[in-house]
């Protein structure tokens, strides 16, 4: 499929989307924990054609020293797209968009991290996008939560994330790149499943209140589904070693 061609229709007569999914279906997700040897915690995520690696370091000493917070750990996050992750080569220099997403991901993860346990230290999260196809920020949050747990950092909950949106007038789940670009709205959401807290909520485009509520119901279910996959991935790492 050539993404440079603008699709005429995002949803066909049978109610299927351009990649053949139903409106409320997630893309296939593959989660793997502990893929990097040198990072304290790491995770690999595939969500449809999105591929990314997350590495977590810390808690470790804060440098530069002026960044120290006296009563909790500093959480730093870097989201980066590799030059080969997009259709056209991406300039490797950090862009405005990457910096914004880094901040948004950090703020989505921070409520779950017990940063007050390790004051004056730093927790570093590095996210590398190897291949992108819409919804990388949500996949990054999902992966970063796993990597944090793998690093042994105290977490209140494992954060799960996904997006919903609107295309051809219908509310759809887990947007791909084309649906994001040519659809009417895109709403990434991250939740703390045990608490029913929303830690990330952005909206691009326009939705009515009814549409928004419908999407929110959809996303809650989807995030729970992702949460189950996350639990499985974490447990699997420690049971497969038994053999």
């Amino acid at each position: 499929m050539n993404l440079n061609k603008i699709p005429e229709k995002l949803i066909d007569e049978k109610g299927l989307r351009i990649d053949g999914r139903k409106l409320d279906k997630l893309r296939p997700i593959k989660l793997e924990v502990g893929v990097l040897n040198n990072a304290e915690g790491s995770a690999y995520v595939e969500q449809g054609r999105n591929k990314l690696v997350v590495g977590v370091y810390g808690p470790r000493e804060t440098h530069p020293k002026h960044m120290i917070i006296a009563d909790r750990a500093v959480v730093r996050c870097r989201y980066r797209m590799t030059p080969f992750s997009t259709e056209e080569r991406k300039n490797p220099a950090p862009s405005r968009r990457e910096m914004e997403i880094s901040k948004v991901i950090r703020e989505a993860l921070e409520p779950a991290i017990m940063s007050e346990y390790y004051p004056r230290t730093t927790i570093d999260i590095f996210i590398e996008i190897l291949q992108s196809d819409g919804g990388t920020r949500c996949a990054s949050v999902t992966g970063a939560a796993l990597a944090l747990a793998d690093a042994g950092i105290p977490l209140k909950d494992i954060i799960s994330s996904c997006s919903f949106g609107k295309a051809d007038g219908k509310i759809i789940l887990d947007l791909s790149d084309a649906e994001d670009k040519y659809g009417e709205a895109d709403v990434p959401v991250a939740i703390m499943p045990n608490f029913n807290y929303i830690t990330l909520l952005q909206m691009d485009g326009e939705l009515t209140i009814d549409e928004f509520n419908k999407g929110l119901d959809m996303i809650m279910k989807a995030c729970m589904e992702i949460h189950d996959l996350q639990k499985e991935a974490l447990k699997q790492k420690y049971t497969q070693n038994d053999k």
Partner: peptide, 19 residues
């Protein structure tokens, strides 16, 4: 048993231990 962060482990009048 193996538990993961955020997993409910006990209910009632307990004092939480480490982690």
């Amino acid at each position: 048993t193996l538990v993961i962060p955020g997993q409910l482990i006990a209910e009632g009048d307990f004092v939480p231990g480490e982690n």
